[in-house]
C-alpha cells in the first residue's frame, strides 16, 4: 500500500498576512475553497500546477510555501537572529 505523504504549508500564514480569504485564494488558483482548507490542514497534496501558481502569486519560491518536513517556527527563527 502506498505510504500517505503529509505536506506542510505556510499558505495560511501568507494568506492571513496579505488579508486573502480562502475563497479569494481558491479563485486565484482556480480550485474550490474547500480544497484550500484541505491543503492547509495537510490533508491534500496539491498538484505541481497549483503549487507553482500559489508560489507565483506570492512571488516566493515553491519550497517556501510547501515542504515535506515541518517548517521551523517563526519565533525560533527570530531567536536565532
Amino acid at each position: 500500500m502506498a505510504k500517505e505523504i503529509k505536506i506542510y504549508t505556510r499558505l495560511p500564514m501568507l494568506r492571513s498576512e496579505r488579508g486573502i480569504s480562502r475563497k479569494e485564494m481558491a479563485d486565484i488558483l482556480g480550485i474550490h475553497y474547500q480544497t484550500i482548507g484541505y491543503v492547509e490542514r495537510g490533508e491534500y497534496m496539491p498538484s505541481l500546477d497549483i503549487a507553482l501558481k500559489a508560489a507565483a502569486y506570492f512571488e516566493l519560491p515553491v519550497e517556501t510555501l510547501f515542504s515535506l518536513t515541518p517548517f521551523p517556527s517563526l519565533t525560533a527563527d527570530m531567536l536565532k537572529g
Binding site: 482556480g30 480550485i31 474550490h32 474547500q34 480544497t35 496539491p46
Partner: peptide
Amino acid sequence: VRGVTEIPLGALDERQ
C-alpha cells in the same frame, strides 16, 4: 456533499 458524485469530472477541481 456538494454534488461531487453528480457533477461531471471536468467541472470539479483536482481534489474533488
